[in-house]
């Protein structure tokens, strides 16, 4: 890697100072890609930001819901804080071809593997 990533100012770009929670997430590996699933209930397409800065992947999901004034809370379990997930990604990921899909509060990010780490089948000659 020729890029010098260590000198980049990280975490300065965070646009929120409000408390955040780490969303539930899962990483799976297939032959072609790493698949990251992030559960972001209550977050729609316009309020999720996914950024790759150097080695850091940041997923920020904002909840759009505010309790209407005429609703009196009886019992609460759902947190109001926004979701923030920061993960490190390394050279095994081809970061130019990341695909993202958000469906009913579930964000799926597909990171294709870099060519160098894909399993390669070698034909036996003769």
């Amino acid at each position: 890697m020729s890029q010098n990533t260590t000198l980049e100012p990280q975490s300065v770009t965070r646009s929120t100072s409000a408390p955040t929670v780490t969303p539930k997430h899962q990483i799976r590996e297939t032959n072609e890609a790493f698949v990251l699933t992030v559960w972001l209930p209550g977050v729609d397409k316009s309020s999720v930001e996914t950024t790759v800065n150097g080695e850091t992947l940041t997923v920020l999901g904002r909840r759009n819901f505010t309790v209407p004034a005429e609703w009196t809370p009886v019992h609460r379990e759902i947190q109001e804080a926004d979701f923030l997930l920061e993960l490190e990604i390394d050279h095994r990921v081809n970061r130019d071809a990341v695909e993202a899909e958000l469906k009913q509060g579930v964000l799926t990010l597909t990171f294709p593997k870099a060519e160098a780490v894909k399993p390669r089948r070698i034909e036996i000659q003769g």
Binding site: L40, V67, W71, T72, P73, V74, E77, I78, Q79, G105
Partner: peptide, 22 residues
């Protein structure tokens, strides 16, 4: 899954975080 219960003048409201279902 987490739920919230609210009361308004003429109704009760239940909110549930159930992401990923159809």
């Amino acid at each position: 899954f987490p739920i919230d219960l609210f009361q308004e003048k003429d109704a009760f409201v239940v909110r549930a975080e159930l992401s990923g279902f159809t």
